[in-house]
Design a protein around this nucleic acid. Structure first.
Lengths: 206, 206
DNA sequence: TCCCAAGTGGATACCCCTGTCCGGTTCTTC
DNA sequence: GAAGAACCGGACAGGGGTATCCACTTGGGA
């Protein structure tokens, strides 16, 4: 664990507490966050809590004191990912004007890449958080951007008319299925990616 | 558990033993098999062994004596499913002559239906058993039949040229992903089914 | 420097699951 | 219908995970 991000970002997990953490507590909190990021990406959203504590070089109690539930930890980590999605959408929105299909497919491929790199990514995106934290906010921003991408692609006739922006959920789940099943080779992932993207295109008259 | 299938079919699990089971043992064995079928379909291939024993109204020891490993139990149950796949392929092969796309898509829809009805179905089909039991045999028969279906559909120009019969594995995994993720509604399943089938068709020139 | 609230981590209780042991029961054979 | 092999299932050991407790340590204000 070299070069740990020492800035302990205050999240919803302890938004209620007004007084700042003691320096050692803040350090441990950051370590736990980093370990969680790593463990979730590698092991999935159901990575053992003790494993996260172990990676952080911290006792289980310390972890639970700062993050009482798994959800608290997940939320912290997932915010990064969702934010990443929301951030990249802008780049592709710019592209959409001249290259609707490239923007549409490019963004989806980007999502699939993230998904492949992070075993917990799908859970992050699909887990609907009822509470309206930054998480949910960013998620909606990403969805709104994608909706525009879809609308542009549809009006250009490069995406099937009955495609809905919400279908992205379906595509992610499908890709997840390929990644999850035994033998999660990159080849299968890229193959299903191509198939799924093709499925988004207008159907040929038959 | 009414009207249990009392005929204790001898499977590979105890193919070595020559002398027949005692009647009470055979009865329990059949009960375990029925319970396993039910539990795997409902809970997935990782259904707890004790749960199966409980449903069978049998002690854990009895279950383990007859089926030392989970694989033995899975194999028994999966044989049914695979056999079902292999059996239905013939029906669609007949249809393929006059309606290549209908046969191709019909068979895949059939597979997806089975998958939806049985949470362990995908594991049954995708788990590659190295041993050449009846299981593997039937699986290859099903694959051979499907290959013919694919060949016929491709030569008729209704399935994309680069589609390989082995891609069915990919399609099943993708569908499984949609079923597995939270909110396994039938609607999502049929939506992804349509999308995946469309993806199998020849791509429009673009 | 001293003090104590904040913080820590190892120990622990509990739960769920797997797989085995063994004293008691039941089938089958003679 | 008695003997004994086959069989039964509750009890139990063991492994891994979650979450909590508590005696000890440490940071930072007075």
């Amino acid at each position: 664990m070299d070069a740990v991000t020492e800035n302990a970002t205050q999240t919803a997990a302890d938004k209620d507490r007004s007084d700042p953490l003691r320096v050692d507590a803040a350090r441990n909190r950051a370590r736990v966050a980093a370990a969680a990021r790593e463990a979730f990406a590698e092991l999935g959203a159901d990575a053992p809590m003790v494993e996260i504590a172990r990676r952080a070089g911290v006792g289980a109690a310390t972890l639970y004191r700062r993050f009482p539930t798994r959800e608290d930890l997940l939320e912290l980590v997932f915010e990064d990912r969702i934010e990443e999605c929301a951030a990249t959408i802008d780049r592709f929105l710019a592209q959409a004007a001249t290259d609707p299909w490239g923007a549409f497919s490019g963004y989806l491929r980007q999502l699939f890449d993230l998904q492949r790199a992070d075993r917990a990514f799908t859970a992050a995106l699909l887990h609907s958080y009822p509470e309206t934290g930054r998480m949910e906010q960013e998620r909606q921003r990403a969805m709104a951007g994608f909706s525009q991408l879809v609308a542009r692609a549809k009006s250009a006739g490069v995406v099937r008319d009955d495609f809905a922006a919400e279908d992205v959920e379906l595509l992610l789940k499908a890709h997840e299925g390929v990644l999850t099943q035994p033998g999660p080779d990159t080849e299968a992932s890229s193959r299903i990616t191509d198939l799924l993207l093709d499925a988004c295109q207008p159907r040929p008259a038959r």
